[in-house]
Design a binder for these strands. Structure first.
Lengths: 224, 224
DNA sequence: CGTATACAAGTTGTATACAGGTTGGATTAT
DNA sequence: ATAATCCAACCTGTATACAACTTGTATACG
């Protein structure tokens, strides 16, 4: 593969982790990655260390770099916090909606609608990542933006992990609805409404997770 | 100096930065630090990269690793966020106050009271760092704990930077008052009161910063 | 057959050598 | 004297060699 800088390697690895290309528990080898990216171990190590600081992997000497699994308690803590932070966005939003955001969201909405009849978890996960990136742009507080991003990637995998056991049509519809509701709120320049929408859909997702976990036989798929 | 692991080097450097031993704009050399800590550049680089991810330094090829300066806009954004997060602590606090916390705080309060007549910015900054560490322990939400810590260290230097131009007795008294108020709230197991106290004292500090900046001739001491 | 042990292969952590880049001062031309 | 140029010293970024550690396997032993 062509040479990539440390930042690109980081983003690539992060995407692979949150798209479950590297599932929780997967063992990564710095050497293998170095060969794949066409660089030495050094920049790969930098990227992995950053992922370790953010809690996505754990390096163990003599073993390897292991993709972290999202344990239930941590998942709930992150979501409890993200819901609170989502409300904060209403207070700390940019005064004006960044140019192009609404147009981008409308494209994503159109893409999402076309997914109804094509079961493709990978594709909708990518789409939701793009949606997330757009939503970051309306946050007017830089540290909050950074933190929201970190927290998102710490748990983004969960959806993909349980998606095979959920109702595909319903998940696609809910995603479309969320994007549409955000667009409407943005067109009204009502940032608190945006915040409310985001919080409500997080809450909805959390309750879907809980009912998923309630079905006993599927409890171990999240894995410790 | 005796060999230190990467984590220890990181904490040491972070403390030096937030105690202004390395003032904003200071140029650090990986080689020099490696010699001082008795290790090679590699673990020093790891520590510096972590500091860079957290926004405390900036590495520039051919130049060095420069201690970041806290610009005014960023400072206000961090404080706006920290005040909101402080309120969240009231909702996401531990059900019970960790054992030993109140005793530790009473010791800190006693130490602080003895500082009234001895002008020593370094000492009170260390004390407030210890206070901060104790306050982290009452946060019941792990990601919030991590984030609160990051945000604290991003702006902790500001106090020390302007302390020489503030009223020492008043600053010591305010610090004592904050610790005492937190102790009282903790003894009542009223976490929302703890959160309120913390927010109010942050707000108070922010207004002191603003009036400091209002005195025109001192405006450039924060530095770009 | 079961168990303990030694070891080989593979991994991360560290040290060192080299490449690429910046800066400030000496030097030279104007 | 002044301005432009060159270069040496220093820095970070990268590549590579080595040390320390873990683990599964083969082997010897009870």
């Amino acid at each position: 593969m062509a040479k990539k800088s440390q930042e690109e390697i980081y983003k690539q690895l992060r995407e692979r982790i949150c798209l479950l290309h590297y599932p929780p528990g997967a063992v990564l080898s710095e050497n293998t990655l170095a060969v794949e990216f066409g660089v030495s171990r050094t920049p790969v190590r930098s990227a992995l260390q950053r992922l370790e600081f953010e809690g996505l992997v754990t390096s163990m000497q003599g073993v390897g770099t292991i993709v972290a699994s999202v344990d239930l308690k941590f998942l709930k803590e992150v979501y409890a916090l993200r819901m609170k932070l989502a409300e904060l966005v209403g207070d700390l939003a940019r005064p004006r909606v960044p140019h192009g955001t609404i147009a981008a969201l409308k494209e994503l909405l159109e893409e999402c609608r076309q997914m109804t009849d094509h079961y493709d978890p990978d594709a909708i996960a990518r789409l939701y990542n793009d949606f997330h990136e757009e939503m970051l742009n309306v946050i007017g507080n830089e540290p909050l933006r950074v933190i929201s991003n970190q927290l998102y990637y710490q748990t983004a995998r969960i959806w993909l992990q349980i998606l095979p056991d959920l109702d595909w049509h319903r998940e696609v519809k809910l995603t479309c609805d969320e994007i549409a509701a955000v667009i409407e709120a943005l067109e009204n320049e009502d940032m608190r409404a945006v915040a409310r929408v985001r919080r409500d859909y997080m809450s909805s997702f959390l309750s879907r997770i809980n009912s998923y976990l309630a079905s006993a036989d599927s409890r171990e798929r999240i894995g410790s």
